[in-house]
Design a protein around this nucleic acid. Sequence first.
DNA 1: CTGAAAGCGCTAACAC
DNA 2: GTGTTAGCGCTTTCAG
Lengths: 344, 344
Amino acid sequence: MSAINQIAEKTRLSYVTVAEILRGRKGYNAKTCQRVLKLARELNYQPNYLGKALAGGRSMSIGVIISSLDSPIEVGKLKEIEFQASANGYRCYLLTHHSFLFAQPADAQPTLADSLNDLIQRRIDGLMVYVVHPLPREVLAILRKATIPVVHIDWAPPEAQQVIRIERQAALRDLAKHLAGLGHRRAVFHQRAPGRMIQPLQKALRKENLHLEAPPEWSTTGHSPDFETQACALASERFRQGDVPPLLICHLDQAAVGVLAACHDAGLKVPQDISLVGWGGLPCAQTCRPQLTTVREPGVGVGEQAFKWLDMLMRKTKDIAGCTTFAAHLTIASTTGQCAGGIL
Amino acid sequence: MSAINQIAEKTRLSYVTVAEILRGRKGYNAKTCQRVLKLARELNYQPNYLGKALAGGRSMSIGVIISSLDSPIEVGKLKEIEFQASANGYRCYLLTHHSFLFAQPADAQPTLADSLNDLIQRRIDGLMVYVVHPLPREVLAILRKATIPVVHIDWAPPEAQQVIRIERQAALRDLAKHLAGLGHRRAVFHQRAPGRMIQPLQKALRKENLHLEAPPEWSTTGHSPDFETQACALASERFRQGDVPPLLICHLDQAAVGVLAACHDAGLKVPQDISLVGWGGLPCAQTCRPQLTTVREPGVGVGEQAFKWLDMLMRKTKDIAGCTTFAAHLTIASTTGQCAGGIL
DNA sequence: CTGAAAGCGCTAACAC
DNA sequence: GTGTTAGCGCTTTCAG
């Protein structure tokens, strides 16, 4: 028998009366309340949210889909979202996209679509989607059918109503100008895996007559979250092969730090022998030597804004489609210099 | 009306029959099944987990309390736990301990105790607690009253039954011997805030006649997750004041990397002028130059093991108290050298 | 193979 | 101020 029933019995009150007192509704006899509350404490009464949610139609929980937790960029936003949610009485279901992170047969792995479905079945009140790359079509299909409020950060499907965009055009343009000004004409992109991040970069560089390549031998194949060491090993190997591009742009600061180590080991001077650009504006970009020229992604504020928006949607305060933008910024430091034209 | 009812009406079957077919129970007429499933698809039927959980007594969700998300050590374990949970049909409620991370009046912040209570009210099936420092007594009181299975990683209250311990004694002893062998007699500990991590270290060092201090001026006061930059700034300031301890032990590799940068800026040679020890065995320890001597915390496997254990408890397969241990290991690299005895 | 009835713990609407 | 009744969507038990 449920605790409320027990209390109701002992106090000879009705179930509902007890329930309402417990829920904090005012207007009841003070003594009655005291008796009820005392008993509740003795029984260690814990209201059951499942029943509450079932009857009340709101689960007070949200889903947070986040593409990975491998860089502070993502983790920072997760933290903010979780904090805001918590402060507003919501709990977060975490959903990461690690389909490739662990070596397991692909068909044994639950897909993102399955997991999302699961969340919907749990009747989350809202969903936060923070991904850099487009979501698989099955996932989009689910999103379309579900009627819960969704706020996207960064990438969003065309039909999305609520989006927090990350504007990188200006930063990329600045970067291109900066590099062109140093005499660079050719750049190599070091990436984790072929991705879409490269296209806007390529476009921006082309406007300044800079040619960007992303040759497979500069692409990391593994899927470990250890960007630094992977990049270091890869770059060391490239350098050993005599492949020293005058300008290397890395997909993440952590990777650039790894390359920096490889340069050190190979006796290459940065930026005299090779120029290096990072991505993210992470702390490590400031504490490596030389300091990294990098594109700083927006940090503090994004997650908070995103949650506030979702909250509004969930309360149906407003239902307007909209789009807030946070901008990335170029940070010029010491890893970019005059093009070491002679080498290649 | 619920989707099941609709289907039951149209097919002229009973509610329960439809529900069971939908739940995948075998033994029904094949044609009946097909009709039901077809309708379900048309109606985009999504079983309601809240009802399921309420009736079934299991919510298929677990709570994950994790002290912070500021270092890859913690995030890595979270990822593993989330992955394992997901693969076993459980969803994770994330709970971080950011009471101090955001500048807000303390009383406006939901406490960890409140959040934990909330999770219990949501009837999580199990709880994972991964904290380095002791939990507040209110939280422990809640844990004691609740009857859900709990698995602790690292710190655990004395009464805890299931604990994954992280054994650091041996590594600390090795570290102490290594440092003593280099002629060191005095060390300064650089930390984020006064904590308990220092005591075992102090003890281990004392056995080798090494004296460890943790003076407040080497302690970071802020609470930003940006260890590298903070440590760099702090160390720079200390060096400027002429405070160059012959041996500095940092509470985290990231902080050590920051100090390394400060050394570089101050013209101090590592390890000739100052020896540096990190903590964690993070990727950045391998990609800074010189590479960090560090205490490598156990990484891959801990989260997985922890979840497997929790899973066993939740299924009540076994109920034995127990304790698995993962060990930390000393990694000797290039930031520790002969004591620069002359300076102080 | 199918169905009826009771109950999980809670809320909402309305009566007294 | 307090009680009654119905229902949220699902599972379980037992009867046919």
